[in-house]
Computed example of a mutant assay.
Amino acid sequence: MNITPLDITQKQFRKTFRGLDAEEVEAFLALVAAEFEGLVKENLALREDNQRKADEIADHRGRERALQETLVTAQRASEEIRDSARKEAEITISDAELQAEKIVQGAHSRFLRIVDDINELKRQRVQFEANVRTLVESHLKLIEAFREPAREEAVQLIPGRRRAADE
């Protein structure tokens, strides 16, 4: 049974010969009704406050859930970005290694060509020296060949010298 302040103020008591003082009972009932009305208003205010706080809590829980979802999404995005950056770095490193390998192969090929060129130049030098040596030797032989008959002719032309040359 719910009693309202209005029920308290409108409550009628039976009258008896030796009953209670009606004015005192009515004053007390008015005081109880006023207190009860205050408690009902306070209860109503507390219920409204409680409902408002429950709504706020629900709102905060919704925000918390949204923040958690955002955090999870951000973590996933961060992991994806990190994975993507790692893959890109691996590709870049792989490309750089391939480029370096090509450069090394090119340098090695050039080195082999230079070594071949140097060996060819050494061979040509040896051949040139041999050709020059052969040419010089043939010229020396020619000079000696021309000198010997010229000496003999010169010795024959000088009569006193002939004996010395013969001896």
Rank of each mutant, 00 (worst) to 15 (best):
I143H: 06
D95W: 02
R86W: 04
A89R: 07
I81H: 12
I8K: 00
V155L: 05
T73R: 13
R125W: 08
H60P: 00
L20Q: 12
T16H: 11
L46F: 03
E137G: 03
A85S: 10
A58Y: 03
I118M: 10
E37R: 01
N43K: 12
A164C: 04
Q10Y: 02
A77L: 08
Q68W: 03
L142H: 12
E101G: 01
L67T: 06
I114K: 06
L46N: 11
A34N: 11
K87C: 04
L135G: 07
K141M: 09
L71K: 09
R76L: 13
V126Y: 06
V72F: 06
Q124C: 01
E80R: 04
E120I: 01
L46A: 07
F146D: 15
L44T: 15
E152F: 02
A130D: 14
L142K: 13
Q124I: 03
E90Q: 09
E79H: 09
G62C: 03
K102S: 09
E153Q: 10
K122Y: 08
H60W: 14
T73M: 08
L6P: 00
R82W: 06
R86P: 00
A77I: 05
E129S: 05
G38H: 02
R113I: 04
I103Y: 05
D21V: 01
L39S: 03
R125F: 11
N50P: 00
P5D: 05
E24Y: 02
L157H: 13
P149E: 10
A34E: 15
V40N: 03
D116V: 02
R82A: 14
R47K: 14
R18E: 10
E35F: 06
E153G: 07
L140M: 12
S84V: 01
A66V: 07
V104K: 07
L44M: 10
I3R: 02
L142F: 09
N50I: 05
E152Q: 12
E48W: 00
S84A: 13
L71R: 08
L121E: 14
E97L: 06
A58R: 03
F128K: 14
I143T: 12
